[in-house]
Design a protein around this nucleic acid. Structure first.
Lengths: 159, 159
DNA sequence: ATATATGCAAAGGATTTGCACGGTT
DNA sequence: AACCGTGCAAATCCTTTGCATATAT
């Protein structure tokens, strides 16, 4: 018999039901700005809701992603990560990813130009390839400050 | 004692050695335009070189990626895929990915504007976040023609 | 001759599935 | 009451590792 929170209506009239695990997972994701893996979510929730199993975490994340409330990020370390997808355009952002330590930086500056170009490109691609574009994904890969400094030192001391 | 092919020199004087598995894997990748998974590479090579094991495929792909000859794509279906990275700018491309059936379309049109903007953005991001940007990744997600048509039909017939 | 590369089998991890039980509607 | 959601354990699947052997230089 879960409470009244703000996403409940997204589940009503749906095939889906509003349950405790779904509430707390969604709640956790929308409170953090981090990109959490299923295991991290499970561990965090374990403190307050030891009953929630790993399976449910996966199934819930999958559901939320299909509902469009959450974005699944696949970044190349073995596990997928999830972030809350704000419905507000304001919070839209892209990623900067350190290939050494896995650090993720969200950036939302400089997006105006990017987004304009993206929209233009999307239109052209949709027409040319008969493809319905629903989303895009832009990321820059490289070395964060720490890892860069470290690799500099190494390469000057190396054999 | 492998042959004389064109990448041999990339391995000479290196810590790495020029071996048969490395040659045939590289050769396969540079002949196809597909985005092959480790398993697909293994299966394909099995016909001509049954001796090459899965492990070697993984290790070789990893090496080639670190050498910059190959790009590893992580697209969200369970497995990583690899594509030959042409050193020529001409062949640089981005991806259009069908989230339903996994189809991948490479496109290289419209890149000029994209790349110009990307360079500008990279500079700004590098300065602001003290981040060494080495690569970028742009992809559009959506439905390919077939999957789109199918989902249209479904949604008009659905309960 | 020596250090690196390979293959096999086993280990490791993340994610999924089958099934009986519990909770929502 | 009917049906969906959950938890557990087992099953899958992709990828990595340990180790003895084979190979390139």
């Amino acid at each position: 018999m879960p409470g009244p929170p703000k996403w409940r209506h997204r589940f009503q009239g749906h095939v889906s039901r509003w349950t405790v695990p779904r509430e707390v997972i969604l709640d956790l994701l929308c409170r953090t700005s981090k990109h959490l893996s299923a295991k991290e979510i499970y561990s965090y929730l374990y403190k307050s809701h030891p009953g929630i199993g790993m399976t449910t975490v996966y199934r819930t994340l999958d559901l939320l992603a299909r509902m469009g409330l959450v974005t699944k990020l696949v970044l190349g370390d073995g596990q997928s990560r999830y972030e809350f997808k704000s419905s507000d355009r304001e919070k839209h952002h892209h990623h900067l990813l350190c290939t050494k330590c896995g650090k993720i930086i969200d950036y939302s500056e400089f997006l105006d130009e990017e987004l304009e170009l993206i929209r233009k490109t999307e239109k052209k691609l949709e027409k040319k390839y008969n493809f319905k574009i629903l989303d895009h994904n832009i990321e820059f890969l490289g070395l964060c400050e720490k890892c860069y400094v470290f690799s500099e030192k190494r390469s000057s001391n190396d054999s």
